[in-house]
Amino acid sequence: MDFGNSLALSLCFLFALADLSHSAIQLPGWLGDKKTQAPVLRLNKGAVTAPFDPTRATPLSWHPRAFVYKNFLTDEECDHLITLSRDKLELSMVADNESGKSIKSEVRTSSGMFLQKAQDEIVAGIETRIAAWTFLPVENGESMQILHYEHGQKYEPHFDFFHDKANQELGGHRVATVLMYLSNVEKGGETVFPNSEGRMSQSKEDGWSECAQKGYAVKPSKGDALLFFSLHPDATTDTNSLHGSCPVIEGEKWSSTKWIHVRSFDKPSTNANNGGCVDENENCPTWAKNGECQKNHVYMVGSLDSPGYCRKSCKVCSS
């Protein structure tokens, strides 16, 4: 499933869920292919997993687009992910804006590790459920990262989309992030969006940390999942998606992050390997004939951030 299908389907699903009249920008092929959608909803048998119930998802903000899903994970799933990672944690790193390499930084002081994709039945079930909720295919996701924050540890506000070209070569930008809370936190540890449109209107009663007062904030609650998009529907980066993890004041915080890219993270882009003059979807010639090169210029042709997916059919390059 390509980015045009997967992102547009996710927006269509979430907009309908909230029963809102907002109109999304339609990417090519936005109605999708039922043959590729059906398996997404099939969970592995025998795994101790929560049922997939989209009515538990609530919209938090449209700028950025953010949603919370109550009890996305069971207590058993949360405990299982912690058990898998507890003795394998290392100091968390960040991506250098110029080189794209992972480096140590004071802006991120947690510890963490990456699981393998479909490492076991429970992990595979969670990954499948994420794909069902977001309408973004499993192959577009990175391996789940497990994070542990102790007293005073934090992650300063940052973007999940990339500033360097190196990290965009595999999978393109991160379009969406699913942040799953694996534990409760006695005080602090909130996820905060400093640029969110709701930062001034959210009521902050007792119990919120000083850090959480600086934007729209979400308290960690064991089993809940937070989904937010780092790109606009037209595939441009959304600066409202700036977010951070507030310092833990009391207790400890366990979480799991799933980053999802605009295309497959399991195989390199054909654009990156062929000088950028290729079509990455078999429907590109049809879309081009229907005028999508002009209507959907960023997706079809590209932007300064990344090349488009139908450059050959849009005749903006020579093979």
Rank of each mutant, 00 (worst) to 15 (best):
F193Y: 05
K295H: 01
D305L: 12
S318C: 10
S230T: 14
V185S: 04
N281S: 14
E252K: 15
S256F: 05
Y299E: 00
Y216E: 12
E250H: 09
T270K: 15
G188V: 09
G223L: 00
F229V: 04
S313F: 00
L242F: 01
P285D: 03
Y299R: 01
L231P: 09
E282N: 13
N273V: 01
V278I: 15
C277Y: 08
F229W: 11
C314Y: 02
S303D: 06
L226P: 07
D234H: 01
Q202R: 13
W259A: 04
C314V: 08
C293S: 10
A217K: 07
W208C: 11
L304P: 00
P220E: 11
E252R: 14
S209A: 13
S256E: 07
T239S: 12
D224G: 12
A288R: 01
E186Q: 14
V316Q: 05
E210F: 01
K222G: 01
K187M: 03
E292G: 03
D238M: 08
N240W: 06
P247G: 09
V301R: 03
S203R: 15
P220I: 10
S183W: 07
K253Y: 04
C284G: 11
E197M: 10
V301G: 10
D234G: 08
S255C: 09
G275I: 13
T237S: 08
G291K: 10
V298N: 15
S256P: 07
S209D: 04
N281L: 04
S230P: 02
T286C: 01
G308C: 08
N283M: 13
F228V: 04
C246Y: 05
V185A: 04
V192T: 14
G251H: 06
G215W: 02
L226N: 06
Q294F: 04
G275R: 12
C293P: 01
C284A: 07
E250N: 11
D305E: 14
K219E: 12
K312D: 00
S303P: 11
K258D: 00
E210K: 13
